[in-house]
C-alpha cells in the first residue's frame, strides 16, 4: 500500500513531464519540461501561487490566534472531567463532513440574504476574505490538537514558578508558554498550511472568483492531465521546503 502511495507520487512527477498530443485528444509520453516552462513563463500562475501562499499564511495565523486560548483553557484551566468533554467537543466537528461545513458557510456569508447579512446587516460575501475565514474554520481543530497536546506536556510548575517570581499572567504567557509551545504551533501549521494550499472545494463554494492552485489543478485536470500534474507538484515542493525548514524546531515529533 505504501509502495503504491509513494509510487503514485513518482507517477505524478512522471506525468507532469508528459505533454498533450497535437490535437489535444490524448497524452504523449514524451519527457520534457514544457509544463514547468509554461508555469514559469506565464505570470498568471505566479500570481495564483502567491495568492494561494498568502491565503495559506493568513489561515494559519488566524488559526493560531483562535486555537491558543481554547487549547490553554482546555489544558490548564478546567477540571479534568470537563476537559475530556471539551476535547471531544473540539474533535467531533473535525470529523464532520468537510463538504457540509463549507456548504453551510455558503449559507452563512452569502450576501444578500445569508445568515450574517440578515443577523448583523453585514457579511464578507464570497471572495478572498470569506475564503480565509472558512478555511480557518475548517482546519481549526488541526491546530487545537497539537497545541493542546503541547500544553499538556508543559509542567504546571513552570507557570507557578513564573508567577511566584512576580510575573503577571500576560508576561508568563508571552515569555514562558509561547516559546515552549513553538514546536506544537509549528506542527499544527503544517496541517493548516498544507490543507489550505490544496483546497478547491471551499474555494469553489465560498471563494467567489478567487483562483488558487487547487482550483486551477481541478479545472485543467480533465483536459490536460500533465499540466495539472505539474501544477500539483508546486504545493508538494512548497510543503517539502516548509517541512525541511521547520525540522530544526523539533516540530516534526509533534505531528
Amino acid at each position: 500500500m505504501l509502495i503504491f502511495y509513494v509510487g503514485s507520487l513518482a507517477s505524478l512527477f512522471l506525468t507532469s513531464l508528459y505533454r498533450l498530443n497535437e490535437d489535444g485528444s490524448g497524452i504523449e509520453k514524451v519527457i520534457g519540461l514544457q509544463n514547468y516552462k509554461e508555469l514559469a513563463h506565464n505570470s498568471v500562475y505566479l500570481d495564483i501561487t502567491l495568492r494561494t501562499l498568502k491565503i495559506a499564511v493568513l489561515v494559519t495565523l488566524l488559526d493560531i490566534v483562535l486555537a491558543l486560548p481554547i487549547a490553554f483553557f482546555m489544558a490548564k484551566v478546567v477540571s479534568p472531567r470537563f476537559r475530556r468533554l471539551l476535547v471531544a467537543a473540539v474533535l467531533v466537528p473535525l470529523w464532520a463532513s468537510y463538504l457540509v461545513k463549507a456548504f453551510s458557510w455558503r449559507a452563512i456569508i452569502g450576501s444578500p440574504g445569508g445568515v450574517l447579512d440578515k443577523t448583523f446587516g453585514m457579511s464578507p460575501n464570497y471572495g478572498e476574505i470569506g475564503l480565509v475565514i472558512v478555511l480557518a474554520y475548517l482546519w481549526l481543530p488541526y491546530m487545537v490538537v497539537p497545541i493542546y497536546a503541547g500544553l499538556e506536556r508543559l509542567p504546571d510548575s513552570l507557570l507557578d514558578a513564573s508567577s511566584d517570581l512576580g510575573a503577571h499572567f500576560g508576561f508568563t504567557f508571552r515569555k514562558v508558554v509561547l516559546p515552549l509551545l513553538m514546536p506544537a504551533i509549528v506542527a499544527g501549521s503544517v496541517f493548516t498550511f498544507s490543507l489550505s494550499l490544496g483546497d478547491y472545494i471551499a474555494v469553489d463554494l465560498v471563494g467567489g472568483n478567487t483562483q488558487v492552485i487547487g482550483s486551477v489543478v481541478f479545472d485543467t485536470f480533465s483536459a490536460d492531465l500533465p499540466f495539472a500534474a505539474a501544477f500539483a507538484v508546486v504545493p508538494v515542493i512548497i510543503m517539502v521546503a516548509y517541512i525541511l525548514g521547520i525540522r530544526r524546531t523539533g516540530a516534526l515529533e509533534n505531528l
Binding site: 503514485s8 507517477s11 505524478l12 490544496g198 487547487g214
Partner: peptide
C-alpha cells in the same frame, strides 16, 4: 495526511 488531498488525488489518478 501531510500532503493536500488534491495532490494525493491527482497522484493516485496518474498512477
Amino acid at each position: 495526511i501531510a500532503l493536500p488531498g488534491i495532490v494525493t488525488g491527482i497522484a493516485l489518478n496518474a498512477a
